[in-house]
């Protein structure tokens, strides 16, 4: 089967990969680029575990074809920590016990960062709405919401 040669930027690095037309960006990230931090929970855009940023836009990478990534910029969980420092959201998730099994955590962190970029001072309800596309089965979301609000406070310097 002929494969497409795709050039893209992932977490700031120029990358190339091969993919079949029907393969998703998620499969390309995980199987071709070995960036397995992005997870597949459903493959139908209903759980958010595969959330990544595509040209600055929050998307489910299971609903994007690999070939559509040509020339585009992708950010994944692997690029979230900067140097030795965790992103404030990552740190607050640890401090607030906002993860258990952790399979949803990469997607939730990506979605939470996207939320805080749009809205640095969200209410509890806005955090819940902003994360409604990300299923978590372990936590009941309580500590996730608290962690996002705490990270928002810290990022605002409040």
């Amino acid at each position: 089967m002929a494969r497409h040669h795709v050039r893209a930027t992932v977490n700031g690095d120029a990358v190339e990969f091969l993919c079949e037309t029907g393969q998703t960006l998620l499969e390309a990230l995980r199987d071709e680029l070995r960036l397995t931090g992005t997870k597949e929970g459903c493959g139908t855009g209903d759980c958010g575990a595969c959330s990544v940023m595509l040209d600055g836009r929050l998307v489910c990478s299971c609903l994007v074809l690999g070939v559509e990534a040509e020339g585009r910029s992708i950010e994944t969980i692997e690029g979230m920590a900067v140097g030795e420092a965790l992103h404030p959201l990552q740190q607050k998730f640890l401090e607030h016990a906002a993860l258990q099994c952790g399979i949803c955590t990469p997607g939730i962190l990506i979605a939470a960062r996207a939320l805080l970029e749009r809205n640095p001072d969200p209410t509890e309800a806005e955090v819940r709405d902003g994360l409604a596309g990300n299923l978590c089965r372990c936590t009941g979301y309580h500590k996730i919401v608290e962690a996002v609000l705490a990270a928002a406070r810290e990022m605002r310097g409040a």
């Binding site: 995980r30 397995t36 931090g37 992005t38 597949e40 994944t76 640890l94 993860l99 952790g102 399979i103």
Partner: peptide, 23 residues
């Protein structure tokens, strides 16, 4: 007390390896 979980950093950075992550 409430120390940070030893599996935590792996899980917030995408390093943690789950079933489908092993090849």
């Amino acid at each position: 007390s409430r120390p940070l979980r030893p599996d935590g950093v792996d899980k917030v950075t995408g390093r943690a390896r789950y079933g489908a992550d092993v090849s």
